[in-house]
């Protein structure tokens, strides 16, 4: 098969300053087999239409900026080659389930607010002030201990999993796959002392029990984080804590 000269890219556009409803716009972009979809968007922006709006930065699938729906599936635009999208057309929409700011730019504030809510940070052991100011040596953690959480620490916060999650679409206050994976990441770290603080968020009705085990999050994750597994693990922990709390009243929180 000979390569096409161009590829058709259709973008669902919207601008908050105009009264217009979202509209589809088509762009005919020069085709290069090894160009990424992001590069095609940049060509549009530079040469064809400076008003097309999208986020990007690293162009190597690590900063998490460039997510959008590509033919109905959440993807990183810098991670897709035109070769794999030919002959087109390619239909682009903003990530599903998020409010849109403009064109392909979505509002990520909801997710950013959920990070402190799930305690997505490591709580180190209490230290004397002097020791905390000038720690003398790294603590030890074996590769086996690392393996417990390492996969969940690979999350680039790209939000593709939220777009794939039907539950988040129905119920936006569900903490969602990435936030719950980050909760698991810290809970499972041998250096962490913050588990107790995360329990309330985990067990609330917006926490792990809201997940209906569809598993699309894991399928779309570009980093192999497997949020579904993380959530399941937290469900197990949540159920165990619940049973213990019944057996040992007064233990909880």
């Amino acid at each position: 098969m000979t390569d096409p000269e161009t590829i058709l890219i259709e973008v669902l556009r919207w601008h908050p300053d105009t009264p217009e409803a979202p509209w589809w716009q088509s762009y005919e972009v020069p085709y290069r087999a090894d160009a990424t979809l992001l590069e095609a968007l940049q060509t549009i922006k530079d040469d064809l239409d400076g008003t097309l709006t999208f986020r990007w930065s690293c162009r190597m699938a690590i900063c998490g900026s460039c997510g959008c729906m590509v033919n109905g599936r959440p993807e990183l635009s810098c991670h897709l080659l035109l070769r794999d999208l030919a002959p087109g057309p390619v239909r682009l929409e903003p990530l599903a389930h998020f409010p849109v700011i403009r064109d392909l730019v979505i509002d990520q504030q909801d997710f950013l607010d959920k990070l402190p809510a799930v305690g997505a940070y490591l709580v180190p052991a209490e230290e004397t002030e002097a020791a905390a100011a000038a720690p003398a040596a790294p603590s030890r953690q074996t590769p086996a201990q690392m393996a417990d959480y390492y996969q969940y620490a690979q999350c680039i916060n790209c939000l593709l999993c939220y777009s794939a999650c039907p539950q988040y679409g129905l119920k936006p206050d569900f903490l969602g796959p990435a936030a719950l994976a980050l909760m698991a990441r810290h809970d499972a770290d041998s250096r962490d002392h913050g588990q107790a603080g995360r329990r309330a968020a985990r067990d609330a009705d917006t926490g792990v029990w809201d997940c209906t085990l569809v598993g699309h999050c894991t399928e779309v994750c570009p980093q192999g984080v497997d949020p579904a597994r993380a959530i399941n693990r937290n469900k197990t922990a949540s159920a165990r804590d619940y049973v213990f709390d019944l057996l040992l009243p007064g233990r909880r929180r």
Binding site: P135, Q141, M146
Partner: peptide, 22 residues
């Protein structure tokens, strides 16, 4: 050294040797 150790305290997953040292 102090700064990289501080980062370790805050949770950075530095690659480890078998015995758990950085």
């Amino acid at each position: 050294p102090q700064e990289l150790i501080q980062l370790e305290r805050w949770g950075c997953p530095w690659s480890r040797q078998d015995d758990g040292r950085v």
